[in-house]
Design a binder for these strands. Structure first.
Lengths: 247, 247
DNA sequence: CGCCCACTTGATTAATATCAAATACTGTGG
DNA sequence: CCACAGTATTTGATATTAATCAAGTGGGCG
């Protein structure tokens, strides 16, 4: 099933025509090797990229090489709607795993968006949610301890993966290195290792470099001080009574 | 002079009519006390707020009270264009100093934006720049040391203040407490104090709780590993040859 | 004057980084 | 199937950064 449609339907539902348009947004899927830049800071990109499979991230680097991952994409995420306005990328996008992406030319996006206002709003919604996630990460970095930060990251991955149908049980495919997680959380790789051990030992979550298993979601969310509001899920479906809300 | 127009003209220039519209966006300026919430997380806001004078911030808080400031507004900044799509605020906005704000009703924004596409693009640009700044903060939090983080924050404040004409020399009005700076940088107030002393002693920047003075901008930017690209200034004026670029 | 803050200072502790070495895992060629 | 090389993970020891605690100091203002 189309992960993009699945994701956007957390915002609103589409009719058959809209779905067909979303399905047909691009033709040629492109396979990108792991750890490969898709767009680099300073570039002036001309289209947007839809992640079809695999994990990709936004990142920024300091002049001396320190890198920070700013967010990750799961299948169904679109990389850069903002490029239509900003002239140059202020950060880079790279794959972590092998990934399949589809590049949608600027022209096609404009056409679709002009013709289907609901799709436009849905894409806009997706962008705003992503920014909300960035803000939550900033909160994590500034205020959460290393353990809380990991607990939170894992809660988020779990919820986002479920939102696009990437998992049905407590286990999510997450083929990342500990050094990747280090770049996501702003911690050293060694410390990441110790934090993971601690979480494993306390029996709330397991991660073996390939699969992430949430053993005790409730406890994990408690450790993380997790509040799902920032993911803005179920706002569109609210009328249908599907959403779950925290107090 | 209108700080909003001044800011947006970093993206494109406007004709007389557009300027008049921007000037007239709202009627009643409202004075808000210092340290007062303007919008709170979970609210469903109905308009956008333009900061006319004073400093305001976005912030998020964890359930146990830890707070993180996510970004600040200077006069000319508009708080929440995104509310048209997201149903609930995922963070709060509060004043730090006494501030003067104008609330623009949703309807008025829609009207103006529909009628003046350039204004729409300019507002969109402003929003995207703000998000770019959030990403840079995330990089700061994750990778910059306390000293670098402060150096960077001060560079940013300096550049943003200049962009809207809030300063002409090396000094910017910045009536904040050290505890405010602590919430911006994710450091403890005590540590902020020591970092400020260090920066003052090394003679690159002074801050006395009221005024920020950049003594040596070049050196400060070096300490901060500052790259102005993320502010996206001068992209619109590029054709006029006004922008300055870093290597 | 005296109170209330914010700021400053010093001492101590806690969190995390760094360094270095050992172990485990993955894929490859024989 | 095994040996090996190259990575990734794990472990231990130590250093650094920043938080915390506690006690001043200083300034603005009723």
């Amino acid at each position: 099933m189309n992960a993009l449609v699945r994701k956007l339907e957390h915002f609103c539902s589409f009719n058959k025509e809209e779905r067909a348009v979303l399905d047909s947004l691009s033709e040629l899927p492109l396979v990108v090797a792991p750890r490969h830049d898709i767009i680099r800071e300073g570039d002036n990109p001309t289209g947007v990229n839809l992640i079809v499979d695999g994990y990709a991230v936004r990142y920024k680097a300091l002049a001396d090489g320190r890198r920070q991952i700013l967010g990750y994409f799961v299948p169904g995420d679109i990389c850069d709607l903002r490029v239509f306005i900003l002239k140059r990328m202020d950060h880079s996008i790279a794959t972590l795993t092998q990934a399949e992406i589809k590049t949608i030319p600027e022209k096609r996006v404009v056409e679709v968006v002009d013709r289907y206002p609901r799709i436009m709003r849905a894409l806009w919604w997706a962008t705003l949610v992503e920014e909300s996630i960035t803000r939550e990460w900033l909160l994590s970095m500034g205020q959460r301890t290393a353990v809380e930060r990991f607990a939170h990251l894992f809660c988020e991955i779990y919820h986002r993966a479920h939102a696009v149908g990437l998992a049905d049980g407590p286990t999510v495919r997450l083929p990342l290195r500990q050094s990747d997680l280090a770049e996501m959380t702003g911690l050293s790789a060694v410390h990441v290792n110790r934090v993971l051990q601690q979480l494993r030992k306390s029996g709330v979550v397991k991660f073996d470099g390939r699969l992430l298993t949430i053993v005790n979601l409730e406890q994990l969310e408690e450790i993380a001080l997790f509040d799902p509001l920032y993911l803005h899920m179920g706002e569109g479906r609210a009328a249908k009574g599907i959403q779950a809300k925290s107090a």
